[in-house]
Amino acid sequence: MADDSSTILVVDDAPDTLEVMQRNLTSQGYAVLSAPGVPEAIQILDNSPVDLVITDLKMPKVS
């Protein structure tokens, strides 16, 4: 079981992938934040402390 304080940010443009990841990690006891795109991810990173980011590499609208 993971440490209670660990927060993971999952970034993916595919909603299904995002949901699967989120639910899997939540069931492992992590606090999970999710973002469907880069702007949203940056907004979250600016506002909340995040221990780990799991992100899709190739997403639309990202240069």
Binding site: A14, D16, T17, E19, V20, R23, N24, S27
Partner: peptide, 16 residues
């Protein structure tokens, strides 16, 4: 690949 990821992911979740 993407829909397959969904199928596999949700199936694994469901199994839990």
């Amino acid at each position: 690949n993407e829909p397959l990821g969904g199928i596999l992911g949700f199936a694994q979740l469901a199994l839990k």
